[in-house]
Write a protein that binds this DNA or RNA. Structure first.
Lengths: 240, 240
DNA sequence: CCAAAAGTGTTGAGTATACACCCATGA
DNA sequence: TCATGGGTGTATACTCAACACTTTTGG
């Protein structure tokens, strides 16, 4: 057992003095920013768009934008994803809200960060050619990011790794049917370490999340049994 | 091993049509709401204030309010806590953001929910007598809450229970020095189940979070060794 | 028949749980 | 000396990790 110190900000700086007018009328805005993940080329990939406007113009950033009046946060995320990538439906999950007034030097914008998962990088390119200002990057080799998006990226990767270990979240990163080898490769890539094939199979089967399909995948060699997740909605594995 | 279905909203309703003017100028506001916990009378207690204004007037709610321009989220939480309770410093932790535009029927307010911990309920009463519109409630017997604060309460309790098991967060719910019996009672209360005294002591000592003090607490019976947490900043216990 | 990927069990170590008695003190 | 809460050790079950060979197919 090891202990890891975690950063906790306890500084309690006073609110900067503002004129009465500003204090009453200028309020922070709300945005959503979404870290979209997919696995490709044996790497965790995430999708960035090049900013055209604003204080971080020409830098890369996660798809996002201001939340509209009357809109759910999840709705805003889906709308922005549709706009930036053409994606129409995918798994999304709220991560954390980042509220530093200086994260955007032009305006005080509180960003609710989300993570989204798709099962293949081509889910985007397949949609439409007009989303040409975005691109997949290996999460370990991101370009310089605008705003505080580097911090958001770190947070998202941590969450993804953690949830892989105690939920069925992997089902969103895989096609509907897959072999055990593919599932194991996914875990190895995301967790960043190799896994024992026999122990992995035992653990996963013990969770009873998968159903074995009556068909096999035929390829160059011995056919592999195909599996599917019993359900695609989020399940948390409770260990008693 | 059991699996628990988790609610995931995948509905993707279209954004309600709004006039161009409203869409451009009316934006959701940002608020913080803080679930303040303390342990007392062998129960988890949380602090509520009675609302005087707004759409949930006369209902109870967690201390909170709008975030000001230029203010960190953590700052806003501390400012609102100071205003509502007189508390000047305590552990705070962001939980989740609630953005349903209908959660406040009068305005679209995105609430960033926080949890806060103090080591005794008297931390508030001790401050000042002017905070008379608030009161501690057993978390299992809350009155009707305004807005969506019942949902926030559920979320906060879940987080508290979970983090007790893999962090040193308990140090914020105890005085600087305490006996093992007190620590064990805290865990039993929060987790809602009894613990084996010997196994509990072994587990906690194995984490090496505590230091034994050279003094004892003398009372009606055999003196008890006093302990303190080695550090009060958040530590995550990694189990390898 | 060869190459390549799929599939399968066992053992040992370490960890978690269940469980009951003696100790120190004040009254 | 008694009542009360404080403090301690062991035996067992279980879980996790390490480990290598056989099977099936296509070429």
């Amino acid at each position: 057992m090891r202990t890891v110190a975690n950063t906790t900000l306890v500084a309690d700086c006073p609110t900067p003095r503002l004129s009465a007018k500003v204090r009453r009328h200028a309020r922070p805005k709300v945005a959503v920013d979404t870290v979209l993940f997919a696995i490709d080329a044996r790497k965790i990939q995430c999708y960035l768009v090049r900013l055209k406007h604003g204080p971080a113009a020409d830098k890369w950033a996660f798809p996002g934008g201001l939340v509209r009046e009357g809109e759910l946060l999840d709705e805003a995320v889906r709308r922005e994803l549709r706009q930036s990538t053409g994606l129409d439906d995918c798994y999304i999950e709220q991560l954390f809200s980042f509220g530093d007034p200086l994260r955007d030097p032009k305006a005080h914008v509180v960003s609710v960060a989300y993570m989204a998962l798709v099962d293949r990088v081509s889910a985007i390119a397949a949609c439409c050619e007009k989303y040409a200002n975005g691109q997949w990057f290996e999460v370990t080799r991101l370009p310089e990011l605008g705003y505080d998006h580097a911090e958001i990226a770190d947070y998202a990767v941590k969450r993804l790794k953690a949830k892989l270990e105690y939920t069925n979240i992997a089902c969103n990163l895989l096609p509907a049917t897959f072999t055990f080898a593919e599932l194991e490769e996914l875990y190895a890539i995301v967790l960043g370490r190799g896994l024992d094939r026999r122990n992995f199979r035992r653990r996963i089967l013990a969770m009873n999340l998968l159903k074995r399909l009556p068909i096999e995948r035929r390829g160059a060699h011995r056919p592999a049994a195909l599996y599917a997740f019993r359900q695609r909605s989020l399940q948390v594995i409770e260990m008693l």
